[in-house]
Simulated scan of single mutants.
Amino acid sequence: MSNGARHALGVVAGLLLPPLLAAGLWYGTGELSLQAQQAFRVSWVALGVLAASAILLGFLAGSRLSPVASLFGGLSFTALGVLPYVEMATGVRVMPDAFLPSFLHTGFMTLTYSGLQFVIGLALLAVSTFPSRWRGRVAPAVGYQEPWDQASMQPQSPAQSSAQSPYLPPGIRPEDATRPMYRE
């Protein structure tokens, strides 16, 4: 996949997935807390929605798609999560009151006032900052020969690999030289 296509898909995912994630978290948290308070029972639907939201959050945070998706989600969650602190510091009412149905509003208030929405936003922003997520696949350098034979996927001898650095373990590609950890 080209770098432009990867970032274009990241923009689409960044615009579509964070609202779905927010709605799932707000519904799951609100429904779970309301059922626990009113009927002292567990809402399995709410737990399922929270599990699906956790999977979606993991996809946003860890996908190789593009960091633009987690950047958009992180900005929106951080902006919503900082509202109670702005309200406390300035004394001006900035928290929205009646823009959500009651079952979503309860979850929104719970996540926002507990600070969890702010934490999710900062976590998504943090995973967007890693340079390896912004980097696409690099075309092989001129004269660089892969350390393995592409046809048979058999490792080549070190004498056959001409552009190998003496400071890197054998088999490392040039674009992997700046990655923080050695991986096989």
Rank of each mutant, 00 (worst) to 15 (best):
M1E: 13
M1S: 14
S2D: 15
S2A: 15
G4N: 11
G4C: 08
A5Q: 14
A5C: 13
H7T: 03
A8Y: 15
G10T: 04
V12W: 08
A13P: 04
L17E: 00
P18D: 00
P19L: 03
L21E: 00
A22W: 08
Y27V: 01
G28P: 06
G28E: 03
G30L: 01
G30Q: 03
E31R: 14
S33L: 13
S33R: 11
Q37S: 14
Q38G: 08
S43P: 00
V45A: 10
V49Q: 04
L50Y: 03
A51W: 11
S53C: 01
S53T: 02
L56A: 06
L57T: 05
G62D: 00
S63H: 06
S63Y: 00
L65E: 01
S66H: 01
S66E: 00
V68S: 03
A69E: 01
S70R: 03
S70Y: 03
L71W: 07
L71K: 02
F72S: 07
G73D: 07
G73K: 02
G74D: 03
G74P: 07
S76R: 12
S76G: 14
T78F: 13
L80I: 09
L80D: 08
V82S: 10
P84K: 08
E87I: 01
T90G: 07
T90L: 09
G91N: 04
M95E: 08
M95N: 09
L100G: 02
H105F: 13
T106E: 11
F108S: 09
M109S: 12
L111Q: 10
T112D: 05
Y113Q: 13
G115L: 06
Q117R: 08
I120S: 07
G121E: 02
A123C: 12
A123L: 15
L124N: 05
L124E: 05
V127Q: 05
T129I: 09
F130Y: 13
R133D: 05
G136L: 04
P140N: 02
Y144L: 07
P147C: 01
W148Y: 15
W148G: 02
D149N: 15
Q156D: 01
A159F: 13
S162N: 09
A163C: 14
Q164S: 10
S165F: 06
P169A: 08
P170N: 04
P170V: 04
P170E: 05
P174M: 05
E175H: 13
D176N: 12
T178K: 10
T178M: 10
P180L: 15
Y182Q: 13
Y182L: 15
Y182P: 00
R183Y: 11
R183I: 12
